[in-house]
Amino acid sequence: MNPVPAQPVALAAGDALPVRTFGPLTRSDFARYAGAGGDFNPIHHDEPFARAAGVPTVFGMGLLHAGMLGIQLARWVGPDHVRDFAVRFTGQVWPGDTLTFSGTVDAVDPDGVATLTLLVVRQDGGVVLRATASAQAA
């Protein structure tokens, strides 16, 4: 892994976030994030509750894979240089899923502010998260 940059990094249109694949995710990953992030919605850890709510099993909280994407974005552009980070949850993450995190720079304006598009995709091609971000580049 590259060191987390303290200073802005050079970014140009077309640059890609180093792609990371992570998985298979387990119920323990969901439990660990529940404790870390304070998300105790029972649909993410309580099997009988989840089935009663009409889903086959518990699924991961969106802020788990959003957080994983965010920390990878910060590792790329520097945590002090992320300006905006907006995520939309478009699909569920199930136990056993493997996720691929990717992103590209769409444009860099004359002030050096880069706009980015990022995705989190399941092993079956389903998009579970779409994100946009902006970052100050060098």
Partner: peptide
Amino acid sequence: DVARLLHGEAAWSE
């Protein structure tokens, strides 16, 4: 309703 609650979006301005 907790049984119908989903997190749809989150957007940060840092």
